[in-house]
Design a protein around this nucleic acid. Structure first.
Lengths: 206, 206
DNA sequence: ATTATCTATAGATCTATAGATAATGC
DNA sequence: ATTATCTATAGATCTATAGATAATGC
């Protein structure tokens, strides 16, 4: 029954909590259930993390970091603009594929409790600003050249995130309605990734 | 304190519940809180709707109907393809603007409990099939003419929904991080609506 | 008489903590 | 001795129902 018998309970609790919080959200997940999944008693969850809130915050921060990181990773490869952008879109998509519950979790918990966001240094830290500045610069060069229409990096990022998350947001709906197999769903995903690249590249044209 | 003193309690309860469910979701909303907002006692909520689940389902079905309806409304105007599509995108966007919590609510509750979807005749009913068939036909005509690249109506719908919901999904995040005013946010929304139309029309070109 | 509203409460949670016991490190 | 784990429990919920009272329709 226990995720990891003995050894490292603290870690086992974190892992079980991560899984449950991502699946069901903060409110719907109880420390009792976390303990049951781990195979320990409920008090131990509090022994290691004091409160449900602190346990959640630890997980939330990590996940939000990887979500934003996957979008803003700076590439040092010297590639033409379009190829670089294509890689960015695809790697963002692949990161979400690794953790498909993340987008819904993310938007949901922020909406439920926006204060959580304010405590996160990550969001307003230097990394995002730097990365966005860097991408804006690359964009401006293309705009100057006339190969890309006038636009801001924020619009571009919004479009990328938007298109990349939809398959994952709609996954439960999709599977319920169409009764598609997992294999077919995977194919749909991959096709959609290419579609997204296509749409975005085309949308930049002047 | 009461939303609608006296008169129609049943309706007042439904309205308060709708607001709270949309804001906080099924799990985080209690019948106790609904009663408090309405200004009656908690038992009355159960008197009219028996269980929290039935109350929720009534609301869920209505909301899901309007969400899907706004996307699939059939137009009988005789307009050129692009104009018709533009209108469709804009009216879908405007419908969400009227009820900005809807997309998150929608994806969230389906993910939390996919079974809810199975009970809804609306989803698999004739209306969606008819509408989708109609739009596919219009699309095929353009593909035949060579003015639109090869694609399915499903891909097109996914792209529309995806781009149209992002501003609303990200609204709490946006407002928290940028500390933008409501007025500025409204402007951003409108700009984004035009951006979406632009992106989609362009993405259809062969 | 019937329907609407209220008070009170049973029975299930759930979080957090106090205090007992078992395991480990020196 | 210190740290990890457990048992037990207080105090807050929360849903659903039973049964009392008030309001309304004939």
């Amino acid at each position: 029954m226990s995720i990891s018998a003995g050894q490292n309970m603290e870690k086992a609790i974190l892992e079980a909590a991560t899984k449950l919080f991502l699946e069901k959200g903060f409110k719907a997940t109880s420390t009792t259930e976390i303990a049951k999944v781990v195979g320990c008693n409920q008090a131990l969850v509090h022994y290691y993390y004091r409160t449900k809130d602190r346990l959640f915050d630890a997980i939330f921060e990590k996940k939000i970091g990887s979500f934003i990181g996957s979008l803003l990773k700076i590439s040092h490869e010297d590639l033409p603009f379009e190829e670089k952008l294509t890689k960015r879109i695809e790697s963002h998509f692949d990161a979400i594929k690794e953790d498909p519950k993340l987008p819904l979790f993310f938007f949901n918990e922020i909406s439920a409790n926006p204060k959580r966001l304010e405590n996160l240094k990550f969001i307003l830290g230097d990394l995002p600003r730097l990365a966005l500045g860097q991408i804006q610069k690359e964009l401006d060069i293309e705009i100057e050249k006339g190969t890309v229409r006038q636009m801001t990096v924020y619009d571009l990022m919004m479009t990328i995130v938007s298109l990349n998350i939809i398959v994952f947001l709609a996954e439960p709906m999709f599977k319920t309605i169409t009764k598609i197999s997992d294999e077919q769903f995977k194919q749909l995903q991959e096709r959609r990734k290419q579609e997204n690249v296509h749409i975005i590249l085309k949308s930049l044209k002047p």
